[in-house]
Amino acid sequence: MRVHDLTIDGVAVSAPEGTTVLDAARKKGIYIPHLCDRPDLKPVGVCRMCTVEVEGKGLVISCKTPVRDGMVVRTESEGVSKVRQVALELLIADHDSDCLTCAKDTNCSLQRVARHVGVDSPRLARIRRERDRRPLDTSNPFFDFDPNRCILCGICVRTCDELQNINAIDYTFRGTKTLIAGFGNRPRIETNCESCGECVVRCPVGALVPKDSRQPSKLVRTICSFCGCGCGMLLGVRDGEIVSAAGDFKNPASRGRLCVKGRYGYRYVNSPERLTTPLVKRDGEFIPVGWDEALDLVAEKFSESMGDSFATIASAKCTNEENYVVQKFTRVVMGTNNIDHCARL
């Protein structure tokens, strides 16, 4: 593929054809403020924070501008500062300002952009005003949506469309009434939302946040135990308890994505109802026993039922390899073809 050589703030950068200036800068570790762009989504160019100056072309948005040989890009200039500063002030003026109580505090793209770009405080004061508070959508059991913190970057909408192919949410209404919501402004629980939480992870601000927003004290890299897909995940642990789960973007199989079970279904681990030892029924009651005793009992019962009086139903929680072993055991050891799997239903 053709490679283009350009400079960004005087730094030489090479990037393959089709790369955007913003991506090229990102790869080189040069920060260009941005809010609506994400490397895993198609660029839309709506926040204007990524404005840069290209010699001979003037102001352009870097998330939509492909690299070209010989391009000279400046991320700072009078024109650049003006456009993005006023746009930023407009966003801030239309946003809640109680950052300390926001779940995304210190981890918010708007804060980062604001620190980088800076604001003209007197002007900001003049364009700030009392806003009507809009009702929260807390209908989803796993996460909440606060339109008062939403910057309408559209990342959630694009995530649901481009990555998940669900299209549960979209923009509704126009002008300042514009809102992200389900079809017909229905709460999320009444849409076809699968609660995968992919939008929640990508929301750059505190508009979409998990209901359980406890911060872990350490992360453990592991594989999701829910199904044979084996998505990579980072479990957040705090005082011996799992308090969060996040997709592992380094995992080549799942590339950071999880489904509703992997992302939000971790509470069973600490549930008091969880079985932690084998149980054997004696005289109508379940009695906890050791593994050896339990397995002996199973082997004894199996040997009483060789042939077609025996059948297995395998589990989707098992890997392919485990399922292979199950069928092999059933055919070769138990001598029957009575095999089924829950995923067939």
Binding site: V44, V46, C47, R48, V86, A87, L90, L91, A93, D94, I127, I151, L152, G154, Y171, F173, R174, G175, T176, K177, T178
Partner: peptide, 16 residues
């Protein structure tokens, strides 16, 4: 009132 709501300057700036 007719701004589609996509761009910050158009959506918020016009109200200001």
């Amino acid at each position: 009132a007719e701004s589609c709501g996509k761009c910050v300057p158009c959506r918020v700036g016009t109200v200001r």
